[in-house]
Design a protein around this nucleic acid. Structure first.
Lengths: 108, 108
DNA sequence: TACATGTATCGCAATAATACGATTAAGGTT
DNA sequence: AACCTTAATCGTATTATTGCGATACATGTA
């Protein structure tokens, strides 16, 4: 049917998938990298840096905001974006839990 | 246009995005969790566990295999899947690099 | 060889994501 | 108020992803 059956999986699995989805596009990786590096930036900075239009970047920012990874603060006519420390740390924790649960049992 | 402009981003960004994409669906999280827990399993095990059809699960396995996160070994009539340690470790390294590069500079 | 088991692939349908131009909105500045 | 700057949203087109049934394939077993 083409409808992702999220409701058939548990909350932990869906949350992990959401965090991963935030990182699942090179443009969003680039946005996050810039935020990590600069601490803060406005949409216009990203438009100047990335090979995408303003509307597309705005859309990616919206998606990152929806997931919670970043937050934006209105600052006059512009919006200042930065990493949402709390959610960022949570994503880190959840993902590293997943990775570290590998016991290296080897293959068949 | 709808065409992801991967070629406009660097290899590191694309690779990170690919690793994240592997984890960006609850079904694939569930598959990976089962592999982490059991060490190894066949497609039929997953079909018994997950709320998805055999063909859909086979597709997710194919995607995970394409990215390299898992590998499959033919074992008689069945295929034995397991985590590809090397790639798994690389994904872990790359992702934790990203997360740990946060200096906590705070927002505007 | 005929059959059973387990997996991959094909074909299709539907939803989701990506991207852009144009427009709207919101906040300063003159 | 008129205008400029900046960002968000709308509308649309295109590609990607998800999902399933049916079928093909591959490998054992009777």
């Amino acid at each position: 049917m083409g409808l992702t059956k999220s409701q058939e999986f548990n909350q932990s699995q869906n949350q992990l998938a959401e965090f991963a989805k935030a990182l699942a596009h090179p443009a969003r990786i680039a946005i996050i990298e810039q935020l990590l590096k600069c601490g803060t930036c406005i949409c216009g900075d990203l438009v100047a840096t990335l090979p995408l239009s303003q509307s597309t970047i705005s859309q990616h920012l919206k998606e990152l905001k929806r997931i919670g990874i970043i937050k934006g603060e209105v600052e006059g006519p512009r919006v200042c974006y930065c990493i949402n420390e709390k959610i960022w740390a949570e994503a880190q924790t959840r993902l590293s839990e997943l990775f570290s649960s590998f016991a290296g049992k080897g293959c068949c």
